[in-house]
């Protein structure tokens, strides 16, 4: 049942020009940035050759591209997630799901899975560009894989937050703006505090999405960071299910 709903979500995405234009624009921007990183590498390469244990193309090109992708997707995920529930509610198609023999959990998970699969596709397409470097060089696969996993986890958390905001919003536009606001706040949570050792700052640092993505991009696979993203996703999925239940209760 979850799979049925996820498949329809994916299909709806690919049937609309939105998904295609988003894929195209992501590729365009990332290609531009990728070439920029490549250029920098080519300039510093002669000097790097003299240093023992110098950073390779993974550090200088692949990881930064993934970092760029994460910022770009921060802007784009809200546009994809905003319609998940709010549009169905506005078009009154939610009734179809509510009167079918499916539970609220299945509805929420199905929609979530549909979006996550699309985002994984985006990650896969993004990965192709750094992989093209294999033609003339070597990638640190461990580091690159850690980066990809980190990006995927980050996007799953984005999707869960987007789904929840879509569930509480009366229309897709508000859901989009709301999701963007929340994601951005999570992103910049550690910017504000000037006192860098106080408990508030430590908490904000912990909450910040960037702090948990960075280790992955450096090639560090830390289970605490994995737990952070998984926990974030689970919490927002749980809230979505509760919100859908409240719909049925009519409160």
């Amino acid at each position: 049942m979850i799979w049925t709903i996820a498949r329809r979500e994916l299909r709806a995405l690919f049937m609309s020009p939105l998904a295609w234009s988003i894929l195209a624009i992501i590729q365009l921007i990332l290609a531009f940035l990728f070439l920029g990183h490549l250029d920098v590498y080519l300039q510093v390469q002669p000097r790097l050759a003299l240093i023992p244990n110098a950073p390779g193309i993974t550090e200088i090109i692949a990881s930064p591209v993934l970092g760029n992708a994460s910022v770009l997707l921060l802007l784009i995920v809200p546009m994809l997630s905003m319609r998940l529930i709010s549009e169905e509610r506005r078009n009154r198609t939610m009734t179809l799901l509510f009167s079918a023999p499916v539970s609220m959990t299945e509805i929420a998970l199905g929609k979530y899975l549909g979006l996550v699969l699309f985002l994984l596709f985006v990650v896969a397409v993004t990965a192709l560009m750094p992989l093209s470097l294999l033609v003339g060089g070597h990638l640190d696969f461990g580091m690159f894989a850690a980066g990809l996993i980190g990006l995927s986890l980050l996007l799953s958390a984005f999707a869960a937050i987007g789904l929840f905001v879509s569930a509480i919003s009366p229309n897709p536009t508000i859901a989009g703006i709301g999701t963007f606001g929340i994601l951005f706040l999570f992103w910049i949570a550690d910017w504000s505090s000037s006192d860098s050792s106080g408990p508030t700052h430590r908490l904000l640092r912990y909450v910040s999405l960037v702090r948990h993505l960075e280790p992955f991009l450096r090639g560090v696979f830390n289970s605490a960071d994995v737990a952070y993203f998984v926990l974030l996703s689970v919490v927002f999925l749980g809230l979505t299910i509760r919100r859908l239940d409240a719909d049925r209760l009519g409160v």
Partner: peptide, 18 residues
């Protein structure tokens, strides 16, 4: 409750699966 962007057959198949 109809998805306007679907074809009739597609939509009914989805409903059947649901």
């Amino acid at each position: 409750p109809l998805y306007r962007e679907h074809r009739v057959d597609e939509f009914l198949d989805y409903c059947a699966a649901l």
